[in-house]
Amino acid sequence: MKSQKFWAWLIFVLGAAYFIIPLAATFEFSLRMRRGEYSFDAYASVFADPYFASSFAYSVIVGLFTIVVGILVVVPAVYFVRLRMPWLRPFMEFVTLLPLVIPALVLVYGYIRLYGSSSFIPFTGSVLGTDILLTCAYVTLALPYMYRAVDNGMRTIDIGTLTEAAQIAGANQLQIIGQIILPNILVAILSGAFLTFAIVIGEFTIASLLNRPAFGPYLVGIGTNRAYEPAALAIISFIITWGAMGMINVLGRFAPRTSARTD
């Protein structure tokens, strides 16, 4: 027994060290901007950079739009496929997995070919058009996570009978989705939303190739030009991402017991 516990702990410590040492080293390095003593100078420098705030704000806004569009696309789609076209489910599974298989680079080159300024639908011809295109690209990137979160959420409630109960009480499709289905899968949707947010905040390829001032390209730009700030930024984005993940758990605990969960 004793030795079994020892080995279990050893493996745990090794595993933890694998994750924690680089993080701790990065954090330590980020504090060494001032010669000879630890300081938060690198963080001050990051926060003082107007591009940090503007690129972060840009990514947050694009992230929020991505979440809203993602919910509007995915929730009704999953609902109707589960309710009326269950034979379409394997096809849905396949389509929603495609963004994981097709590299973002391929996706964005396709977009530029299709929606470039010389095409029939020149989305990239204007700033707003490019922002819309970026949001659409992110909806696609986040699709595997959003779809699975919502699908799991709907699996835990009897959407067929709940729909019929609401219908016979006089509710229309919109009222059923808005007042019955959505509230019951709220926690599932939130977990999908935070995953989406985490993806959008760190995304580089698409934002960079569409030449939008997002947080990902900013991170990479800093990384190639500065010494200590990238380490500070790495720690900051680590905290943001884990904050988003942590929120999934926190909200899951606060949500009413009736709400469907994904865990």
Binding site: D158, T161, L162, A165, A166, I180, P183, N184, P256
Partner: peptide, 9 residues
């Protein structure tokens, strides 16, 4: 309904 079908939320 047989399975009650109350709205859980």
């Amino acid at each position: 309904f047989q399975a009650y079908a109350l709205f859980p939320n």
